[in-house]
Amino acid sequence: MSVVAEAKHVVKRYGTITALDGVTLELKRGKIVGLLGPNGSGKSTLIKVLMGFIPPDSGYVSVLGVDPYEHPDIRAKIGYVPEEVKLYESLTPKELFDLAARIRRTDTDKYYRMLETLSNALDLRSKLHNLIGSLSKGYRQKVAIALALLHDPEILLLDEPIIGLDPIVARVFKEILMELKRRGKAILFSTHILELAEVICDRIAIIHRGKIILEGTRDEIVEQARERGALEEVFLEVTGKRGEVEELVKAIREEII
């Protein structure tokens, strides 16, 4: 399996805060990597570095053979869903997709076919010509997902993409990801939902305080999970949060009862 994107010993600081502290991660064709970590652990920063939105302070980043920060046009081959979806409220989803297609110079026939398929699959068909401002949060999330998939990208960088989706579309989306994996796409999937990572990811990386503290194949991680009872237990163990959580639960019980 060829490596299509990689980050090696990447460090990123914001003032005195170290968001990424020597992170190394690889994305391969036909594989889904699940990125797990508590809030503020550096998941979104890592995805933004891979997108070339922000340059690393040190370390090496390569996406499809180039530095994404120096070659922003490579992003036309990446599908990206941000953690917080902001869209043009005075455009319709169709107009937004058209804009992206023009920027990416997507083949018009391919774009049309993808738009037909995805708008039906994601239940967006009836909302294509409504202003985005009038859509609910769930529909906006669907628009962001469709936007990331319309140009049939080589790599998918998804930052908490499931949030806000109804169960039916979430299921469809999982199936879409599995199909894209079969077609050789490389996918990085950041999530809080441990069960989801357990089901769809080939590899799982747990990031905490800007460092990858545990990485392995799904089977390896699941094996550890089985020993501890659940993936959640592995997560709490490696992030050192178990004690903290137990303290909190105790305090809550005492306060409420």
């Binding site: 939105f53 036309a76 043009y88």
Partner: peptide
Amino acid sequence: NLWLLFASGIR
């Protein structure tokens, strides 16, 4: 919304 343009690969 500038992220949208940049994420699409605009220069």
